[in-house]
Each structure stands twice: as C-alpha cells, then as structure tokens.
Amino acid sequence: MAARSIASLSLSFGLVSIPVKLYSATESGSTVRFNLLAPDGSRMKQQYVSEKDQKVVARADMVKGYEFEKDHFVLFTPDELKALEESSSHVVEIVHFIPEKAVDPIYYDKAYLLAPDKRGGKPYTLLMEAMRESGRCALARWAWKSKQYVVQIRPTDGGLVLQQLLYADEVRSARDLGIEKVEVSKGELQLALQLIEQISTDTYDPAQYEDEVKERWGDTDAYKESARRASQYTKDDWLRIKSESGANIERFAELLRAGAEPTGTEAKDVAEEHRAQISRWFYDCGYEIHRGLAEMYVADPRFTKVYEDVEPGLARFISEAIIANAERRS
C-alpha cells in the first residue's frame, strides 16, 4: 500500500521556501492484537467514573482540561480546543545549521519523513545535498497540534528526515544516577578495545536485526498458541512459571554435580518434567519439538550461557537428557 502523507508543509529559511509532504517514518511491527474479554468470552465496555461522587460520566458530558498543579485544572471548551488545533503552522522555520552529530540521540522523539511536494523537487534536492556535503543538519521551529517543537532536519538515504526533539527538562541525565567512577588500567582498557574490535562493523543494517522469534516461529501453531496463553497470565502466574522452571533446572544441576549420566533414568525423568512444563504453560511440546529445543540449547550461545551460568556443562547435560528421553518415548 502506498504511503499517505499526514500534512503539507513548507521548509523555510531566509527567502527560501520548499514545499514538502510529511509522512510517518515508523509503523508497528506487531500483527497480533488481543482483546480483553469477560470470562464467558463476551466483549466488555469501558466506563469513566467521577472520583468525586463515583457516578458514571457519559462520554458526551466529558470535558478536557490541563493540570497546572496537582488536582488543579484549567478546563477548555470544544471551541477553544479547535482554536488550538488551528494554531498549528504549516511552516517549519529553519533557524540554524549545526554539525550533524551535535544532537545527542537521547533527545530524539518521533521521526517523520519529508518528500518534495509540487515544484519542490529542485530546492529539496539542493538542500539535502548541501547538508550532506557540509556534514550539517538543520534545527527548526515547528508548531504542530497545539505544541511548539524544536526539530532536526537531516539527510538520509534517498530523502530528508524530520526528527522531533525533546526539550531539556524532558530528558534525564545519567549524572543524576550517582554512578561511581572506577579507575581502569591501560591493560584493561586495551583488552576492552580488542573485544570491541572483534565484533565491530562500519554500518548499521536494520534488516539484520528483525524480530528473531517472530521470524523463526511466527507462522507456527506453537508460537501462536504460546502468544495466546501468555497474554492471559497474571503476575502470580509468571511467578509460578519462574519458580517451576528454576526448580527443574536445579534438579538437572544436582544430577550433574552428583555425576549422573544424562542418559540415565533420573535425568530422562527430569527431562520429561521439563517437556510437561512447556506443554502446561505455553504450547503442546511434542518430543520432536522438545528435541529441537535440546539441540538449540547447545547450538545457540545465548541459551548455552543461561545454563552454563548455573553449572558448567549443564547445557549439554540437559540437551542430552532431553534427546535420550525423546528416544525412550519413540
């Protein structure tokens, strides 16, 4: 589906005015939507209740207000709200050109894409190439939906990005956390630099970092069933799941410490408990699926580390026990 513009704007600086169209730069990657239902599966309706007299307030009777101090509000009529909306400006006024790395990304808020509107192609391209060549971006003022924004306009692959920026009082500083400053030796620093160099790259390709879980299992019945069940669990449910899982892993670890064989009866029985827990809480975990998980526990370093942090050699022990249990049941 072709992208639809949100608004028509003008980039303005000096005597130059560039007509552009505004587009949202992001969209939600989730395709699954869940509804809150009553226990019998019927839909529920939301009601708003006055804190003062506990009476239900109809939507038509609601008013909007701005809280200027705790529990003190300035109320606005519909006409006043409409006037605020109409005060939005279609002019994005560029006030400075600054080095493109001058803005700390912590100040980044919502991003938009800008495309040239009619008769705006030439000046749009000139501005984009001039900023790219100079290594600078634009800072601008923009009144949008009754709020004044400071925005950054920067060149990117194929076009311009308009980035809303947060104000200073909207951003916290790491200095407020009281982080202890610890001295490091030159040798320690050199080792850290070597580790960084080993996995360094000169570019960022977002296509390499897709939602791995969804990419690998999103179309499977097991993934869909797990997502459905997980959406219904309470905090107490998750605490129980964590407790059961931790106890199961500890039983594996105790067998490993005692010198038991992963193909022994005790280890296979604990593996069967592990499979039953997955089936009980997430999805029907058959023996072939369970075998696949076992192989992943030793093939994927992230899973391996979870078990190795409990007891060295535990990942392989659990993997072999699960496979032995699957073979016993086949």
Score class of each variant (00 low, 15 high):
E100N: 11
M131Y: 06
H96E: 13
R141I: 02
L139E: 01
A138G: 09
W142H: 09
P99W: 04
T77R: 13
E86I: 02
A140W: 06
A130L: 13
K122H: 04
P123I: 00
T125I: 01
K82A: 15
E85K: 08
E86K: 15
S87E: 07
P99A: 14
H90C: 03
G135T: 00
R141D: 11
R141C: 09
S87F: 09
A130R: 07
P105R: 04
D79W: 06
R141N: 14
E100Q: 15
E80F: 08
I98Y: 13
S146L: 13
P99E: 05
S89D: 07
V92H: 10
E80T: 07
G121W: 03
E133R: 05
E93K: 15
L139A: 00
M128S: 05
Y112N: 03
F97A: 05
A102D: 06
H90R: 14
D104Q: 07
A115P: 00
S146K: 10
M131R: 06
A130W: 04
L114M: 00
A115N: 08
A111W: 09
E100A: 14
P78C: 12
K118P: 00
E93V: 12
L84P: 02
G120R: 01
R136N: 14
V95G: 14
E93T: 13
T77E: 15
E93F: 08
K122C: 01
S88I: 04
D104L: 05
A138P: 00
H90V: 11
F97K: 15
Y112G: 05
G121Q: 09
